[in-house]
């Protein structure tokens, strides 16, 4: 009976109907089609009023501030962090800036922060630069007691929980004339998969400098 009922057309139709399930499974998943490098996003923000050639010297932090909702206040210097700081120094020097010690009144200061939010929903964001609960580069580190950081509101941030690097370039030269605010004139964020992989940081820093041609001392 069953055989009579299903006959040829019925069989064909059933076979095809079951195929529809396979077809929807053929949807191309964007995430599965990205290599690790392709997942990475390099965002640079800059103060459009800043004259980058008016600064000559810079100083950079000696380690990376770790801002984390699980590990709290910390500073670290992993091989990747070391590599990253070295790369920033060499590229800044290539753009004509001179590295000086922070005690020698540098025009520019560079903060490096790694934000690591492990739980969704409890994210330290934004304000990694100004959050007393977690680690950050206090203006006092640069000798500016009672100062706060100022980020222009036009800067782009992505609000997701993940490990990412953020690099802030501070205008120390004009800090005293800026209402006790240290203006962040350049900010770079490196986001995506495995951004703190030691073999990747070189490419990442190169990319953020390549897309910031205005960063030059002359």
């Amino acid at each position: 009976m069953i055989r009579q009922r299903l006959k040829m057309p019925g069989l064909i139709v059933l076979a095809f109907a079951s195929l529809t399930g396979i077809w929807t499974g053929c949807q191309k998943d964007p995430m599965n089609n990205l290599s690790i490098d392709e997942t990475r996003l390099y965002i640079t923000n800059y103060d459009t009023t800043a004259q980058f050639s008016s600064y000559k010297t810079f100083s950079i932090v000696d380690s990376v501030a770790l801002v984390s909702n699980t590990q709290g206040y910390n500073r670290e210097l992993t091989p990747a962090d070391q590599e990253l700081i070295q790369k920033i120094i060499s590229l800044m020097e290539a753009r004509g800036y001179t590295l000086v010690d922070k005690s020698q009144n540098p025009d520019l200061a560079i903060n490096v922060t790694k934000v690591s939010n492990l739980y969704t929903g409890v994210s330290v964001y934004p304000g990694y630069w100004d959050n007393p609960l977690y680690g950050y580069w206090d203006p006092f580190y640069w000798g500016y007691y009672g100062y706060s950081y100022y980020f222009p509101p036009t800067y782009t941030f992505y609000q997701v929980s993940q490990t990412y690097y953020t690099i802030d370039m501070l205008d120390l030269k004009n800090a005293a004339n800026n209402n006790n605010q240290i203006k962040v004139i350049w900010n770079a964020q490196i986001r995506g998969e495995a951004v703190d992989d030691p073999s990747a940081v070189d490419t990442e820093i190169q990319a953020v400098f390549d897309q910031s041609p205005y960063l030059k001392a002359s």
Partner: peptide
């Protein structure tokens, strides 16, 4: 579906490099 190779997208005061 289309994947666009890495390039820099410019906005006033912001540049984003992305695939």
């Amino acid at each position: 579906y289309q994947k666009i190779p890495r390039q820099v997208y410019h906005q006033p005061g912001s540049d984003i490099s992305a695939v």
